[in-house]
Simulated scan of single mutants.
Amino acid sequence: MRWFEIALVSLTLFTGAVWLLDKLFLARRRAAHADRIDVEAKEPAIVDYSKAFFPVLAVVLILRSFVAEPFRIPSNSMMPTLLTGDFILVNKFTYGLRLPITNRKLVDIGAPERGDVVVFRPPQHPDQDWIKRVVGLPGDRIEFVDNQLIVNGKPVEYLPVGTYTGVGKGAEMTGATELVEKLPGREHRVLETPDIVGFGQSVWEVPAGHYFVMGDNRDRSDDSRFWGFLPEKNIRGRAFLIWLNCEGWFCSGAFDTSRIGTRIP
């Protein structure tokens, strides 16, 4: 929600500027004027509101920009790990501190690891926030042959779980094959759709400063297999926790309380 970020930054700067201007100049001018005409100096409404809202807005902006930011999952591309309607928290400092809106890195702290679930702005849609799993690091050779992932020449092991049963907006995935993908350093579950022909054979060499990302719902994900590598500068943070699940933008549908507090593998 880039518009929310812009609005939050704008309101914080505006209320802060009004509060500072009043503290440095306007308050003394009002007091002097009130002494001359023997009346009580009253703050304008805009000053009163700014003083009340600025601390709150500043705290929210700092927490959202540098600590953790909430996101909502809008599609089935990360099933079975993440479901449509999941509200997640994204760690904003794991990979370094970044400025809001521009996403420019201020402090370099770490880098994405293979298996991390990351929120990012895709190169082809820079105003949108997407979420996928990192499967390829800079310098890696990634192959995907008929739904078999191969990392640096080593086929990733898969363990069958069974037939998946979807619920809610994920019901369309009922009947898919659920597997444990033993990605080096991070095991997680993926879905494959039996009636969809395999992806074929493709090979990618991940360049420096970029990552190769894929959705866990392999046959329902628009990811690096189709649009290329993810630049490091586009990454917003690492998803780590589901804090709510409900259907509908205003949670007008059913709640799934079992997902509250679930860590994202």
Rank of each mutant, 00 (worst) to 15 (best):
251 C>W: 11
194 P>I: 09
137 L>F: 06
36 R>G: 14
238 R>D: 00
122 P>L: 06
225 R>D: 06
210 H>D: 10
238 R>P: 01
168 G>Q: 07
92 K>G: 01
203 V>P: 02
109 I>K: 04
223 D>M: 05
89 L>Y: 09
209 G>A: 10
231 P>E: 07
171 A>V: 13
79 M>W: 04
33 H>C: 15
87 F>Q: 14
153 G>V: 09
129 D>M: 10
22 D>C: 00
17 A>S: 08
174 T>F: 06
31 A>L: 09
128 Q>D: 11
183 L>Q: 09
109 I>Y: 04
185 G>W: 07
145 V>F: 14
49 Y>F: 06
128 Q>E: 13
15 T>M: 07
130 W>D: 00
5 E>R: 06
18 V>L: 01
129 D>E: 08
130 W>P: 00
8 L>N: 02
54 F>H: 04
161 V>P: 02
261 G>Q: 04
153 G>D: 08
48 D>G: 13
131 I>Q: 03
74 P>S: 07
129 D>V: 07
36 R>D: 15
168 G>W: 07
97 L>R: 01
175 G>V: 07
35 D>G: 10
103 N>G: 08
249 W>I: 10
111 A>G: 06
182 K>P: 08
149 L>C: 05
246 C>I: 09
140 D>H: 05
199 F>G: 12
152 N>E: 05
137 L>D: 01
264 I>T: 00
251 C>A: 12
13 L>H: 09
239 A>M: 05
243 W>C: 08
89 L>D: 06
114 R>A: 10
224 S>W: 09
191 L>Y: 02
61 L>M: 08
40 E>F: 14
105 K>E: 03
223 D>W: 03
70 P>F: 13
226 F>N: 05
114 R>Y: 12
62 I>G: 10
134 V>Q: 03
248 G>I: 09
125 H>W: 10
243 W>F: 14
114 R>Q: 14
10 S>K: 05
142 I>S: 01
188 H>L: 09
188 H>W: 08
151 V>G: 00
178 E>A: 14
195 D>G: 12
132 K>E: 08
242 I>A: 05
11 L>N: 05
239 A>Y: 02
57 L>C: 11
195 D>K: 12
86 D>I: 05
167 V>Q: 14
183 L>M: 12
78 M>V: 09
174 T>N: 10
80 P>H: 08
138 P>K: 02
17 A>E: 07
133 R>D: 03
37 I>K: 12
187 E>K: 15
18 V>I: 05
64 R>F: 11
218 R>Y: 03
105 K>S: 03
67 V>I: 12
65 S>Y: 01
60 V>D: 11
169 K>W: 15
162 G>H: 10
226 F>P: 00
108 D>S: 08
30 R>Q: 09
110 G>T: 03
59 V>Y: 04
212 F>G: 00
42 K>L: 15
243 W>T: 08
50 S>R: 00
164 Y>R: 02
261 G>H: 04
60 V>E: 10
101 I>A: 03
263 R>W: 15
57 L>F: 13
196 I>M: 13
92 K>D: 02
188 H>C: 04
231 P>F: 09
152 N>M: 09
